[in-house]
């Protein structure tokens, strides 16, 4: 270690010295883990969910030889409950984690700068301003989008658990907890339809989310994709704001 400390700056074969830029630890390990578990679980949920709605072609032979629909449904239920468990852990982390971990849980609508930032970011996406601003956490527009997605996830989790509780029976704790969804949607067929539309909403979210992350990674003034791997947000310039 001492050897590295003795070398000033960083040198490579080209001989140029690297410049030190500001790096902030934003996404703590549990937050990153949650993000990637979500990514996997949501992928599994979308694929299996689609095949629950539109099953694969019929299998030949005896029913005792197969359990295809059973496995697909099991995967869906397991992934869904994994999503919920990690959501709860994430909620806990919002209380004990760093200040960035709390960002998704509220919208600071009383903050005028933040509100202005939504419009500024919107203009940035509409090619109306030349340069983006720097943000340590989510930019205000992304903040709104992610907060909305959390609310939407709540609906998907509640409707998913309500549908799951149908198989467990109306005396199960799942039904006691999530049966209220059937007060909102008395016919479970409607809840199925909304849950299914929710899958497509997730597909739309993923398209926009991945595109925005890649685009920001290239165009913005801070790191994006690698931040969700290492947790560190690296700023590309020393200019103010």
């Amino acid at each position: 270690m001492t050897q590295i400390a003795q070398v000033q700056g960083v040198l490579d074969a080209s001989g140029e010295r690297a410049r030190s830029l500001q790096t902030i630890y934003v996404y703590e390990a549990p937050v990153r883990l949650w993000h990637w578990v979500n990514a996997l679980a949501i992928t599994a949920l979308c694929v299996t969910g689609y095949f629950i709605g539109s099953p694969l072609p019929s299998l030949p032979g005896e029913a005792s030889q197969h359990f295809l629909m059973g496995y697909i449904r099991f995967t869906h239920f397991a992934a869904g409950q994994t999503l919920i468990v990690f959501f709860l852990l994430r909620l806990y982390w919002a209380f004990v984690g760093n200040k960035f971990s709390r960002q998704l849980s509220y919208l600071p609508v009383w903050n005028k700068t933040w509100l202005w930032g939504i419009f500024y970011e919107f203009k940035w996406y509409m090619f109306l301003v030349k340069d983006p601003k720097k943000y340590i956490g989510h930019n205000p527009l992304a903040h709104v989008a992610m907060f909305s997605f959390m609310l939407f996830l709540l609906f998907m989790m509640a409707s998913g658990m309500a549908l799951y509780s149908e198989g467990l029976g109306i005396d199960s704790w799942q039904h006691r907890l999530f049966g209220f969804m059937f007060t909102l949607f008395p016919n479970s067929q409607d809840l199925h339809t909304w849950h299914h539309l929710g899958m497509w909403a997730i597909v739309v979210f993923v398209i926009v989310h991945v595109y925005a992350a890649v685009r920001e990674d290239i165009l913005s003034r801070q790191s994006m994709i690698s931040s969700m791997v290492s947790g560190e947000r690296l700023f590309r310039d020393d200019l103010p704001d």
Binding site: Y50, G53, S54, Q189, D190, H192, T193, H196, L197, M199, W200, A201, V203, V204, I207, V208
Partner: peptide, 26 residues
Amino acid sequence: RLTGINVFGIEANADKVGATVAGVVA
């Protein structure tokens, strides 16, 4: 299997609606 949803007077289901929206967004 999938419930018909009457969108703008056109018969569709969750998959048709969702895939259309996803396609437009993409």
